[in-house]
Design a protein around this nucleic acid. Structure first.
Length: 586
RNA sequence: GCCCGCAUAGCUCAGUGGUAGAGCGCGUUCUUGGUAAGAACGAGGUCAUGAGUUCAACUCUCAUUGCGGGCUCCA
């Protein structure tokens, strides 16, 4: 329990964050009270406030149904209406054990707590073991709604009992709650799986392998566009692009340490001529072989090897999700091998490069996390310090807001993760920059320095988009499927009003295709209104309408997908308009 | 993997212990139109898979597979 002082502070004097926190926490108690009323044999576990509300975990005699949530919510509202006082105090552990004698989860918590006294909160008949942070009365909890039930392990450990977790949403006012629910619905409308199907971009085939993505022609057009700009920018930023195998013998994965430390993330071995081969879960060991293929001089450093490398990782069936979590995906991977002196500039360059690339795709807000040396790690303290300092300086130079996750680095090196914010305000981690003090040792990577001696280089892993599949999913949700013209699978559709206009439409298509624009002609036997509707639903940036009047004047009527009518234009002007938008990646 | 829910036409979804429906989409025909749905007709389903209960299962039970929501937010 935080200080009694804090708990006694008048609710009305608190800031909004703390108020909301307390309201959510109290709502959790009120929920637990309702559940205990409805199920006297229920065992209650923990019930904290969370980002959008609260939850409480229970062990119950039966599974909850959506109807249960409705009746529990009713019970809660009664308690709110009664507006009883919520009180808290510190009591001796012994006393607490008596109060919670038939509550095994509470007893376990009591035993695990270090202080001699524990927090005890109550309102009406309800009592709970609790660190505190509550409203003063049950009537002060704002606007809430029970949202759903989910399974959750006691203390998040899958070896423990599975409890039923009831989630609730809670905000100050009805309108804030409403706004949150609407934002959620908007997110549902933008679900990349839905958009992917509607726009015919990609599919997965559960019967032939869940978590494996099939890119359809239109999705592939977008991917090719993403990859093209990716390659172009990598060459421009001093990277060399490589291709490496999708599989390699066990000996490679033994030496890299993956079989020891990452085998649960790998697909099972394949037998080839009596040897075990594994699908690659990472590209690094292969890039290292390219480096090691010959004696390297310091004059060749920094060496930056980049690959759109498709990797396969075993993900547990329950976590697969559309394009966001899959078993086969393409990393935009690179490994930078450099000297100590070069390291800091390399990091700075990577961070700049990340932002440059992500901005191209329409993202403008970023945050970073810097994860430092964990308790168990390889490498020398000096290396870690240098690397961490370089990472931090690069974040400062880029002006990125960041948080430090003390001890959160991988055992092999510190890292920064960069999160982007999408239009719905959701954060996604795509980019990562990681030092690796482990693989250069394991593979005995060396270069000959200016002094003629062998030196161990630094190695930095980095991915900018992360996974092409996942990034594509984020991009679709960010734009709600209405991708900017340069990424759109179909950039404009020519709509002839009647069959006799088809020839003109195809001529227009042929002209625009010469400027490397992706143009369809809708020559289906439909009315113009229907063709426009289809094009709108397909989120095609421009509709070019051709009828008698246009053919007469050798022009075309142009309409944007946002509904704006741009009137009629000469064909050359249309071509310029589209080309410029494409080139500027507007 | 585990908990809960779900699985009916290409998509979205109704439905019944007596082997099935709608809308959209698709095909054909009519129609040749002016900025978000023209009309008619038609084709499409072993009701996820396997087993059980039953005279009879798409429907009830169990299992399997897949999908969806969750599984750090430490009283």
């Amino acid at each position: 329990m935080s200080s009694t002082e804090e708990n006694n502070q008048k609710f009305s004097t608190l800031n909004d964050v703390e108020k909301l926190h307390r309201m959510r926490h109290s709502a959790a108690h009120i929920l637990a009270e309702a559940v205990l009323e409805a199920f006297p044999s229920a065992k209650y576990a923990i019930g904290p406030p969370i980002d959008n509300g609260f939850y409480y975990d229970f062990e119950l005699p039966r599974s909850l149904t959506p109807e249960d949530l409705i009746s529990l919510e009713k019970r809660m509202r009664k308690t709110v209406k009664k507006n009883v006082e919520i009180t808290g105090e510190l009591i001796a552990k012994e006393k607490a054990r008596k109060i919670f004698a038939d509550q095994p989860y509470k007893l376990e918590l009591i035993n695990d707590l270090e202080d001699e006294e524990v927090g005890y909160f109550q309102h009406a008949q309800f009592q709970d073991l609790c660190r505190g942070g509550h409203t003063e009365r049950t009537g002060q909890i704002g606007s809430f709604k029970l949202s759903h039930v989910a399974g959750a392990y006691w203390r998040g450990d899958e070896n423990n009992t599975m409890l039923q977790r009831i989630y609730g949403l809670l905000f100050f006012t009805d309108s804030e709650l409403q706004a949150y629910v609407e934002a959620r619905e908007e997110a549902e409308r933008r679900d990349h799986r839905k958009i992917g199907r509607e726009l015919d971009l990609f599919s997965t085939h559960e019967e032939y392998g869940p978590g494996l993505v099939y890119w359809h022609p239109k999705g592939a057009r977008v991917r090719v566009e993403i990859e093209d700009v990716w390659r172009q920018k990598h060459y421009a930023n001093g990277y060399e692009i490589v291709f490496t195998p999708h599989t390699g013998k066990a000996s490679l994965w033994e030496q890299s340490g993956h079989l020891d430390f990452y085998s649960e993330g790998m697909f099972s071995a394949m037998d080839i001529d009596g040897s075990d081969y594994y699908m690659k879960p990472m590209n690094c060991p292969f890039h290292i072989q390219i480096f090691r293929n010959t004696r390297r001089s310091y004059r060749e450093l920094p060496m930056r090897l980049a690959e759109l490398g498709t990797v396969y990782r075993y993900e547990r069936s329950g976590v697969l999700h559309g394009l966001m979590r899959v078993r086969g995906f393409t990393q935009d991977d690179a490994h930078i091998i450099c000297t100590t002196e070069q390291m800091e500039n390399e990091i700075v360059a990577v961070v700049d490069f990340v932002l440059e690339l992500l901005r191209l795709f329409g993202f403008t807000e970023f945050e970073a996390n810097l994860s430092t040396q964990p308790a168990k790690s390889v490498g020398e303290k000096k290396q870690w310090d240098e690397a961490e300092k370089a990472l931090e300086r690069s974040l400062n130079r880029a002006g990125l807001p960041y948080e430090i996750d003390e001890g959160g680095g991988a055992f092999y090196g510190p890292k920064i993760d960069i999160h982007l914010k999408d239009t719905l305000g959701r954060k996604w981690q795509c980019s990562t920059v990681q030092f690796d003090f482990n693989l250069p040792e394991r593979f005995n990577m060396t270069y000959i320095g200016e002094d003629g001696n062998e030196h161990r280089p630094y190695m930095i892993h980095r991915a900018l988009l992360g996974s092409i599949e996942r990034f594509f999913g984020i991009l679709l949700e960010h734009h709600g499927g209405a991708l900017p013209l340069w990424l759109s699978p179909v950039q404009a559709v020519v709509i002839p009003i009647a069959d006799r206009h088809n020839d003109f439409a195809f001529q227009l298509q042929a002209k625009l295709v010469q400027s490397e624009l992706r143009i369809d002609v809708d020559d289906s036997n439909e009315r113009m209104g229907n063709k426009i509707r289809k094009a709108q639903l397909q989120k095609i940036p421009y509709m070019l309408i051709a009828g008698d009047r246009e053919i007469e004047s050798n022009q075309v009527a142009i309409r944007r997908r946002d509904g704006e009518d741009l009137g009629t234009m000469n064909l050359d002007d249309v071509e310029k308009l589209l080309s410029n938008e494409k080139i500027n990646r507007a």
